[in-house]
């Protein structure tokens, strides 16, 4: 107990010392008119392990073996929470990202031109908001272009984005005779309906940086980075433990709400580093 206290004490002193050092260089003068960068890293995991597609077998909460072949999701409408209580909304037009486990480049989101400040957390949408989901085609570029960037993440027949797509195989899933495999497909979308109210699976998630802050400063040569863990197994586990035997395919149907409610809990903080 005493040692713990001592260690904590030392830590506190060290932290103070460090922050006072920093203060001299950076924090003494936060000017929101100066802009810096910040990185958000989405580190996909399977429970406590790093997620590996295809070759690793994991278990869901019901003890069913799963092998994931695809894991993708939209992150959009990012807001940074400032220590001073304000929030900075990243420009909406630049605030759409498609994180794909198969493409490491997509897992690091760099936000640029962010006002200087000490940020204590981040809020984002998992999916694509309804406004963008109904915007004219010409306003949907990059990862939102249904024919290109959003290919595979867009329901052509039921105009709307797939917010989260997980595919894989499991011995619990029924046999597909054509392929000889036991696949499952979770394609979760639905933005609330264009004219008739429909299920709305748009989720807003806030991840606090805990006791850490991400200090954005113009003068910094390397931007602060917030590393988030994203536990893919939480798509299957949570308020509703998904029984792959009963629900091998969930797309545009009411059960999708259970999966969306699960995966909104898959984000947590790993760490923040400032240099």
């Amino acid at each position: 107990m005493k040692t713990t206290k001592l260690i904590l004490g030392l830590f506190a002193i060290a932290t103070l010392a460090l922050s006072s050092c920093k203060k001299d260089n950076n924090t003494s003068d936060i000017d929101p008119n100066r802009k810096g960068d910040i990185g958000l890293h989405f580190d996909n995991r399977a429970g406590a392990q790093d997620l590996v597609l295809n070759t690793q077998t994991y278990q869901n909460a019901l003890g069913q073996d799963v092998n994931l072949s695809m894991f993708k999701y939209y992150i959009s409408n990012i807001k940074l929470i400032n220590k001073d209580g304000s929030t900075f909304t990243y420009p909406k037009d630049q605030s759409y990202f498609l994180v794909n486990e198969a493409d490491a480049n997509t897992q690091e989101i760099e936000l640029t031109n962010v006002p200087e400040g000490d940020y204590t957390g981040v809020t984002f949408t998992v999916g694509v908001d309804s406004l963008k989901s109904t915007a004219p085609l010409a306003e949907r570029t990059g990862v939102l272009d249904p024919a290109v960037g959003a290919a595979g993440m867009y329901w052509m027949w039921n105009s709307g984005y797939i917010f989260m797509k997980m595919e894989g195989t499991s011995p619990a899933a029924p046999l597909d005779t054509a392929s000889g495999t036991r696949p499952f497909f979770y394609h979760i979308g639905l933005f609330g309906g264009y004219s008739t109210p429909t299920i709305n699976n748009i989720k807003t998630v806030t991840v606090s940086f805990g006791s850490s802050v991400a200090s954005v400063r113009q003068a910094k040569t390397s931007a602060p980075e917030a590393h988030l863990y994203v536990d893919a197994l939480k798509v299957l586990n949570g308020t509703t433990n998904i029984n792959i035997a009963n629900y091998p395919v969930v797309m545009a149907n009411p059960y999708s709400a259970n999966i969306a409610n699960n995966y909104k809990e898959m984000f947590s903080l790993d760490h923040v580093h400032n240099d």
Partner: peptide, 11 residues
């Protein structure tokens, strides 16, 4: 299922 003619032809 499609609410904008521009989004139709992809189908």
């Amino acid at each position: 299922g499609v609410f904008d003619l521009d989004l139709f032809s992809i189908n």
